[in-house]
């Protein structure tokens, strides 16, 4: 099993209907600056490649970048941090989504029950509270609503700290998109972690897709550079 790059992961889920934060890829720091200006500051800059699954642990992302100069510096540092085993890499520039609520959603293949969709409360305390629930894919909208209702922290989905309630229909869209993606047997797992709730809308700001086989190179690069669903 292999992970694919965040850019390719974003394209995969966005094509299925998941709302992801604005993003673009760039081969070098100068193009990263251009991309950042198009997206609008602040942005996040990440090192992006198929073999890079855990950016945080390796310090391969810079968050809340406010200027062209900082984008350039971040781009240089990140590309220098690449290791030979990372293979082909590029820079990923994403919009910074701002919201107080984080959710997590995903797809996993269970040896007993096959493809399962998960929804849970995200953020740094996610694993402590483990407020997550599953459904078997494929599932319909009613079952997706039922999945939302399984979370213990229902108050978190209502109006919260001056922000509107989470748009349950939009969250159901995301769940159903993950369910649709389960049709692809090559797709092993998907993580939307976190989904940040912005003005009630759940937006995936980090996406990791794991496949059985690495698709032939080129397929996703093309898609990624054109892949701004917003």
């Amino acid at each position: 099993m292999v992970t694919i790059s965040e850019a390719a992961s974003r394209t995969t889920v966005a094509n299925a209907g998941v709302i992801v934060s604005d993003w673009a890829t760039a081969p070098d720091p100068e193009e990263a600056v251009v991309a950042a200006k198009t997206i609008g500051f602040p942005v996040a800059v990440k090192l992006c490649g198929d073999a890079i699954a855990h950016k945080t642990e390796r310090g391969l992302l810079r968050l809340g970048i406010d200027s062209a100069e900082e984008v350039r510096e971040a781009g240089i540092e990140l590309l220098e941090a690449a290791r030979p085993e990372d293979g082909s890499v590029e820079l990923l520039i994403t919009a910074m989504a701002r919201g107080d609520r984080e959710l997590i959603a995903g797809l996993v293949r269970d040896p007993q029950f096959g493809p399962c969709v998960m929804l849970g409360v995200g953020g740094i305390l996610a694993e402590v509270f483990a407020d997550v629930a599953f459904r078997l894919a494929p599932l319909g909208r009613k079952e997706a609503h039922d999945l939302l209702n399984d979370l213990s922290a229902q108050a978190l989905l209502g109006p919260f700290r001056g922000q509107p309630a989470v748009d349950r229909e939009a969250l159901v869209d995301t769940i159903c998109a993950l369910s649709d993606l389960a049709d692809d047997p090559d797709l092993v797992s998907i993580d939307l972690n976190p989904l940040i709730v912005v003005e009630g809308q759940p937006i995936a700001v980090d996406v990791l897709v794991e496949r059985r086989h690495l698709p032939s190179s080129g397929t996703f690069e093309t898609a990624a550079t054109s892949g701004d669903p917003n």
Binding site: I104, G106, L107, D110, P111, C116, A130, E210
Partner: peptide, 26 residues
């Protein structure tokens, strides 16, 4: 809980019991 691939966060949260619970409700 079964041992699962660690690459995915969803995978690490996917205990047999939670999946059974969702399956039962569904």
């Amino acid at each position: 809980g079964g041992q699962r691939a660690a690459a995915s966060h969803t995978g690490s949260l996917a205990s047999d019991d939670r999946i059974f619970d969702g399956m039962a409700r569904q």
